[in-house]
Write a protein that binds this DNA or RNA. Structure first.
Lengths: 116, 116
DNA sequence: CAAATATATCAATTATTCATGATATATGGA
DNA sequence: TCCATATATCATGAATAATTGATATATTTG
């Protein structure tokens, strides 16, 4: 991950529709969602949604897979990991006590997660 | 944290200079960095840097504190936490096994961290 | 192969964002 | 109070991104 890929990923999440799409895909988990289904849920025109999905795809934040005439989209957690690792590089190394509470809140010890 | 605050935070990190600033501040930890110092390190004109710091500030990703005639900036990990909690909401709840590897990589079990 | 459905691409307009010169504000020191 | 230093704000032009109607591509079905 370099600065270009990383800014691209953050830019992809910097627009309301795309952020909502990603959040839906996170919630959908391994089942993913069909492109049209996402457009309906968020009330976004077909070509606009297609363009937005393409931005998320290019940013490495989602994957997709054709299923007959529909295309199913999934959140790509590896992409998120790469983006965040770059963002937080050397955080803990330098000042562990600064990052500790952050790490604890983001990990599964909070309401974020039930049982993982 | 709502969709507006969240997109604002991602937008703040979607530009190369600002992302570098934030990464510097993460590395600087509790010591923070003076505004001018950041501008020098990144070779960015004074007013441009001021505008960019202001974007990060408004996004809730950095804090600052005046010290005499200089102003010191710090990464605000609470802001990052809020942004990421919103992004990843219900991730673990729905499909724990999807998020598990992600969580492990982002937390201090990797090269991300020495001892925390 | 023709029609229907699902998604993607193109072209054009509008809206947003960026960097910057000029200038303003705030603080400290002579 | 006057000057120097550090940072912020303003106005503007240039670059980027967003939305959308129209159209193209891919797949399934009859």
């Amino acid at each position: 991950m370099d600065i270009l890929q990383s800014t691209q990923a953050f830019a992809a999440l910097s627009q309301a529709t795309r952020l909502e799409v990603f959040r839906l895909l996170v919630k959908a988990g391994a089942d993913g969602l069909m492109a049209g289904e996402i457009g309906e849920k968020l009330q976004v025109k077909q070509n606009t949604m297609s363009a937005n999905l393409s931005v998320l795809l290019n940013a490495g934040l989602v994957k997709n897979k054709r299923e007959g005439r529909t295309i199913r989209y999934y959140a790509d957690m590896d992409g998120v990991t790469a983006m965040l690792s770059f963002l937080l590089e050397d955080c803990c190394g330098g000042q562990p006590q600064l990052c500790q509470p952050f790490i604890q809140q983001i990990t599964c010890s909070t309401e974020n997660c039930n049982d993982a």
